[in-house]
Design a protein around this nucleic acid. Structure first.
Lengths: 324, 324
DNA sequence: CTCTCCTGTGTAAACGTTTACCTATGTGTT
DNA sequence: AACACATAGGTAAACGTTTACACAGGAGAG
């Protein structure tokens, strides 16, 4: 029950291994006669080429790596799915690793991907490991940042325009007459969190208000921190009448916290970055900034294909920065 | 900027490639002197071994494949995360592919994994491809079914006891006095759906009731089908006073549907398989069957390690069927 | 009729590792 | 002194592909 090799096929078909390879790869010249003969044998023996050997010889692994900060978050996995589809189309495969928002795990992941000789890395980073990222980029591997920019790294980026979106979300609250707005911001190591917070501040300043630090709570994008934020903000002497929440997990936490406090969910107007399941049920008092992960995945795939197509190596182009 | 090989390291360190390899793998004898010398060179040149070449020579890829029916579903990805952790521990990596609940994509995925020479496949199947699965299993690769059994396939399975859980969930509704219970069941090609439906029926029969087909709606585990189910069940001449929903996505749909119909969410008592985000907010009228994906991932990892540890190949043991 | 070029096929050398086998020391035991 | 055995390290052959090169026959051009 040993695995078959190209030699077995060659022998059975009465040709050389070179010919078998040519048939399998549609390369070089091979007569129609022999071609079908070989294919018949392949089918008969149920031969499956060893892609490891192929990769070694061709010095191409036909694989790309992806590092996400939370594998259980459907936002990132929607990106991943779209990317995987694109990869499949060009016969590549996607190797997904979860960094769990932990820079040291991220580092490990990058090393693994390097050893696996992936041809590109799609990275939604934790914000750390700048030196390693730079080193890898210099060593020739294509690095594409998604969702989050990373400070000090110049590379292609596919991301949403968090700042403008946050501005608009904030303006919505202002238009509804709120002047006392609570802010649940994300961890300031993460680019999206910084951008969103900046957007909120800008909108407030434009409206002639100033940001009161008392009304800002820094969470870590987790549900638990949303609960804490709720307890903090809603127990202020003069609680906010509206809250901006920087991501959906924290918004879940916010609602859970309100529930713990015995409040009616409608007591506060909320605007959340990222959709919530069941959000339609809250629609009178909840607005969300719709994100479009599928589109990010799509565009990331295009970037990758673009780069891999031109056999790379030669050009040292300035990074293309794409914002959507 | 060519990639370094073991030869480069050997030359630089003034030793043979064999010695370098021995150092890197902690195998065979090598003096402390030479060892540190080699390691210094490795560090200095920033050499990274090519795991492709290693895999080829060793005929081990140190990789395992996983096929899930929905990559964006946090249930499966929680399993995946746990599994990936386990894999990392033993220096394996996990290759995750999304079948999107589509048997033909599943087939493609299996072929890719075979060519990649993964050492095991963890499969949450679509219910199809029995012949291929059998063939692969016969060809020596270890196949571990998770979450869902597959008809006609004998293999190790790590799954929850859906039937008993569904029974208990149903009994809860019965205890609350409901006699008119709507059922949203899942696609009958999928094992979990069959089991859950069976559990519900059993509980009803035990209570001396009989299943009325009018009150059973077959969805496809998607949110949309949950919405349709709501419209169907709640527009019956005599609508149910309680509903059993076979998975969480359909439960989301159910609530969205109720909302569309202008109903109060509290009008109906619901028991759902699989937790919902924000479910605490509904607690008076919603109960959920808590699932434990992390535990499934954990146990699946154990199975894999177990099997890989004994160098396999020799034993033809009867499959271990594990139910949790 | 010769020269060139296209077609079809085989031979063997890579790709970058690991490892079986060999040789050479030293060290302790009898 | 003779032997066994542990230590240390080199040589070269694999692993399963792809592909550069070589060669041969046939066709078309001059």
């Amino acid at each position: 029950m040993r695995k078959l090799t190209v030699k077995d096929v060659a022998k059975e078909a009465g040709v050389s291994t070179a010919t078998v390879s040519r048939v399998l790869n549609n390369s070089g010249y091979v007569s129609e006669q022999v071609r079908s003969q070989v294919l018949a044998v392949v089918k008969k023996l149920n031969y499956q080429p060893n892609s490891i050997a192929r990769s070694l010889k061709q010095e191409k692994t036909r694989s790309i790596g992806m590092i996400v900060p939370d594998m259980t978050n459907s936002y990132f996995m929607t990106i991943a799915r779209q990317l995987q589809r694109k990869c499949m189309e060009i016969d590549y495969h996607l190797l997904i690793i979860d960094s769990e928002e932990d820079p040291s795990k991220e580092l490990k992941a990058m090393q693994v991907l390097m050893e696996k000789r992936v041809e590109a890395i799609v990275l939604a980073g934790t914000g750390g490991n700048q030196e390693t990222i730079r080193a890898m980029s210099n060593s020739g591997i294509y690095i594409l940042l998604i969702d989050r920019r990373i400070e000090g790294i110049t590379a292609d980026v596919v991301a949403e325009n968090n700042r403008v979106a946050a501005q608009e979300a904030t303006r919505l609250l202002l238009q509804h007459g709120h002047r006392n707005i609570g802010i649940i911001k994300g961890p300031q190591a993460i680019h999206t969190a910084v951008e969103r917070y900046a957007g909120v501040r800008e909108a407030l300043v434009q409206a002639g208000l100033q940001v009161q630090q008392d009304y800002v709570y820094e969470g870590d994008y987790s549900r638990e921190s949303g609960i804490k934020a709720a307890h903090y903000l809603l127990n202020l002497p003069e609680p906010p009448t509206a809250i901006f929440s920087s991501n959906n997990e924290m918004s879940y936490g916010l609602y859970l916290g309100m529930h713990e406090l015995g409040m009616d969910l409608q007591d506060i107007e909320v605007v959340s970055f990222g959709d919530l399941d069941l959000s339609p049920l809250f629609h009178n008092r909840l607005s969300v900034v719709q994100q479009n992960p599928a589109e990010i995945g799509e565009k990331a795939g295009d970037c990758i294909i673009d780069r891999l197509a031109r056999n790379s190596r030669e050009r040292i182009t300035p990074p293309i920065v794409r914002k959507y």
